[in-house]
């Protein structure tokens, strides 16, 4: 068991962190908004943690746990505020336009972080202190967090706010006519997603020990989008399963050596063509008897 964790512990924590990132993208998607901004907020949260723990507070030995919690909170809050500022104008855009605006947002943040002194420029920030001795202890923080966010998503899906999200996703004009304020709910979904991404960034910075501009790139945004779409975008389970599966996939394919990234791309292609609704579908979950059938049946695919 010990060897299992020492071999795969890092991967397992990474899978949970990526599943959480997937969830951060799932929240806007609940309201029908395709936002690729998650890696931008993730990078922001990570930089906040990295700067605090290496430049503001100087500690010896293990990094204090309460400071880590503070960083997570700060990362989430800062991301939430930024999301509010960006979201109010940006969420007037629909579909592909919003996706493009969020790509632009991520790229701008990336170039800025490449050029600022405080973020360490192109080199990034090194030697971020460790609050835990091994990946297993990280898992004891990240797993409850994953369960908490997933539980929140599950509650949200069935709440009044969640139903407003669904209504906007299915038909924004109709939702508006029914007295739902689309802008309010879209910005809310965007801010929730950003806060999750920012908080996860703060943990990841410690976990990865180093933080640089490569954390928040277009490629990262695409990976996270793939988690949700390959996993299934109609239930929060999709983001989790997709995050787990696609993070583990390169490791599973490791015996293929240099071919594994090619196979990874091929699987995305095949997934898009043959699993248009993703791996996990609400109807499928309902058949398992775990959940009630979703109130609104999906009208199209995806």
């Amino acid at each position: 068991m010990d060897t299992f964790f020492s071999t795969y512990g890092f991967l397992m924590v990474q899978m949970m962190l990526q599943a959480l990132l997937g969830l951060s993208l799932y929240f806007p998607m609940m309201a029908g908004q395709l936002s690729l901004a998650s890696p931008g907020f993730y990078a922001l949260g990570g930089y906040i943690a990295a700067v605090i723990s290496t430049k503001v507070v100087v500690t010896q030995g293990m990094y204090p746990f309460h400071l880590l919690l503070l960083e997570i909170l700060l990362g989430a809050m800062a991301s939430g505020v930024l999301a509010l500022l960006v979201g109010i104008p940006a969420l007037r855009l629909k579909g592909i336009y919003l996706a493009l605006a969020t790509i632009a947002f991520v790229e701008i943040l990336r170039v800025v972080s490449l050029n600022l002194d405080i973020t360490g420029g192109a080199v990034g920030i090194f030697g971020i202190p460790q609050p835990f001795a091994n990946p297993l202890s990280y898992a004891l923080l990240v797993l409850p967090l994953l369960i908490l966010v997933a539980w929140f998503a599950a509650r949200l899906e069935r709440s009044r706010v969640g139903r407003a999200f669904t209504a906007i996703r299915e038909d924004e004009l109709a939702a508006d006519a029914m007295g739902i304020n689309p802008t309010y709910y879209k910005v809310l979904a965007f801010v929730i997603g950003a806060m999750v991404a920012g908080g996860i960034g703060a943990i990841s910075a410690h976990f990865l020990n180093t933080w640089n501009a490569r954390q928040g790139t277009f490629d990262a945004a695409i990976n996270v989008l793939a988690y949700v779409l390959i996993g299934g975008s109609r239930t929060f389970w999709g983001a989790i399963v997709g995050g787990f599966a696609l993070t583990a996939l390169p490791e599973i394919l490791r015996p293929l050596g240099d071919l594994r990234l090619i196979v990874n791309g091929l699987l995305l292609v095949i997934g898009a063509i043959y699993l248009p609704q993703g791996l996990i579908r609400p109807a499928w979950l309902a058949a398992l008897g775990k959940r009630k059938v979703a109130l609104v049946q999906p009208k199209g695919e995806l």
Binding site: I222, A226, G265, L267, L268, I273, E301, L302
Partner: peptide, 18 residues
Amino acid sequence: RGADPLLALVLSLGLALL
């Protein structure tokens, strides 16, 4: 298959990766 345009986006990203 009459899929959503968003899926074509993912497809094209997979192709780019490939």
